[in-house]
């Protein structure tokens, strides 16, 4: 199945697997026999042509391509014209985490399904990230460790990675400025492990 090989960053990536799980509204163009349990509400043994179902993105990608056309997929609401308008108005205030924690990744996976809207979707993704990036960088470089949770509540997973990278750079820089960069510390895994052990003892 070379046609839908877009495993980014690799085949084993957890976030990519999670991103391709989000639901996409689909309409069956052909009848699919003996798989009626996909649509439990219908009670049929088969999925008849014309049924509308929400399928996970990975399934929609496999069934809707240039070579075969078993279902026709639509964009999920969050990528449609209405949300595109909202993003155009001001992307930086939108709660992307609520719209789907893997907004950008899902968007990329939807590109081959988008048909005539593909160009609009692609520019939506890049424009959104471009508009939000400045704010993310700014808050990553200027917020202390305590109030991080409030800062990242509205960011999607990709943006969180960027934010944490920025925070790490800030902390490393501060350590270096105060000439403490060479001090050895407990490795993070051990630290986390000990914390859990102690909290288990306490409780």
């Amino acid at each position: 199945m070379a046609c839908n090989a877009s495993y980014y960053p690799n085949y084993f990536s957890l976030s990519d697997i999670l991103a391709t799980q989000d639901r996409v509204p689909c309409k069956f163009e052909l009848s699919v026999y003996n798989l009626g349990y996909l649509d439990p509400s219908s009670g049929n043994k088969d999925v008849v042509a014309g049924t509308k179902l929400e399928l996970p993105c990975w399934l929609a990608r496999a069934l809707c391509s240039s070579r075969r056309h078993i279902v026709s997929a639509q964009l999920p609401n969050t990528f449609k014209e209405r949300y595109r308008e909202i993003m155009k108005a001001d992307a930086s205030v939108v709660d992307l985490h609520k719209l789907g924690p893997h907004y950008y990744e899902l968007g990329q996976h939807l590109l081959p399904l988008a048909g005539p809207e593909a160009a609009a979707l692609a520019s939506l993704l890049t424009q959104t990230l471009r508009e939000r990036l400045r704010g993310i960088m700014d808050s990553a470089q200027n917020s202390l460790r305590d109030d991080v949770n409030a800062q990242i509540a509205k960011l999607d997973e990709l943006e969180r990675t960027l934010f944490h990278a920025g925070q790490k750079a800030l902390q490393d820089h501060q350590l270096w400025l105060s000439r403490r960069a060479h001090i050895l510390t407990t490795s993070t895994m051990v630290d986390q492990h000990n914390k859990r052990k102690f909290s288990a003892i306490d409780s």
Binding site: Y11, F12, L14, I17, Y33, L35, W58, L59, A62, I70
Partner: peptide
Amino acid sequence: VRYFSGVHLRHAALERNRRCLLAYLYN
């Protein structure tokens, strides 16, 4: 030939399952 679409659908599910299992072990 009417069963062919179902074969595709199940095959996609098989590949998905395989990917999840391998990713679990690998990670």
